[in-house]
């Protein structure tokens, strides 16, 4: 790794914006590869990248940094990334990194941010917690199933369907939403949970879910899904 070139790339980051020559940042990509076997160098690179997020560099430059932290980020980058979750322009790219950083601190930071966020930003964080299958988020997500913002309630349902633990299934079963769109999301999430429960050998719990969706009040394709699930339950007893 050539430190001079890397310095130049960090310098270029300060003025980088849409339309700029992307090759000026190429050393950053190269440094990611070059530091794979050098923990100290990787740590230094990460620290340096994370620090740029608190500076006045452009949205485009921060976009680039978040993409790099998606690849190399650790718990050390989480505070800088989490500070962007309330920024409408940067929240997505912060999640772009946070969603993929394996450190539990990344999920914890997003859980902690949930109460402070609303609207789209909250929806985004809910989605990322779902993708991470963050079981510790289940109580918070369950509480959002009857959020007055239907978009938030839908997102919580989808996230619980992604987590699909027994607790997630129980939370979905306990919700009594009337809004059609939210109900559709909870239905799908419940069916996902039922599949997971059945795969885990909890046939009775799965069957209870499927029976709930086999009723006359359900759309045809949901009844098909329920019937298919009932058959799967019967088949698993073999």
């Amino acid at each position: 790794m050539n430190l001079d070139t890397l310095d130049q790339a960090f310098e270029a980051l300060k003025t980088y914006d849409w339309g700029a020559d992307g090759s000026a940042l190429q050393p950053l990509d190269e440094a990611v590869v070059a530091t794979r076997a050098d923990a100290a160098a990787r740590q230094a690179l990460e620290k340096r990248l994370a620090e740029t997020l608190t500076t006045g560099i452009s949205r485009d430059a921060k976009d680039v940094v978040c993409r790099l932290l998606m690849v190399i980020g650790t718990a050390a980058s989480v505070p800088a990334l989490a500070s962007l979750l309330a920024d409408a322009e940067l929240a997505h790219m912060a999640r772009y990194a946070l969603e993929r950083i394996p450190a539990p601190e990344a999920a914890a930071a997003m859980r902690a941010a949930l109460p402070q966020l609303s609207g789209l930003l909250r929806v985004g964080v809910i989605g990322s917690l779902g993708v991470r299958r963050d079981v510790e988020s289940v109580p918070a997500l369950a509480a959002l199933l009857d959020d007055p913002d239907p978009a938030v309630a839908c997102a919580a349902a989808v996230a619980l369907g992604a987590i699909r633990t027994p607790d997630a299934a129980a939370a979905l079963a306990g919700s009594s939403v009337s809004h059609a769109e939210v109900r559709r999301a909870t239905t799908d999430a419940s069916l996902a949970c039922a599949e997971s429960l059945l795969a885990g050998g909890q046939r009775a719990e799965a069957l209870a879910i499927y029976r709930r969706f086999a009723g006359e009040d359900q759309p045809k394709h949901v009844k098909l899904a329920a019937t298919r699930g009932i058959l799967a339950c019967a088949g698993q007893s073999q």
Binding site: A204, R211, A214, K223, A226, T227, I230, A234
Partner: peptide, 15 residues
Amino acid sequence: LSCMLCLISAGADLS
């Protein structure tokens, strides 16, 4: 589906 559910309820307990 009524038939299916009847079969299930009439038959052995799948749980």
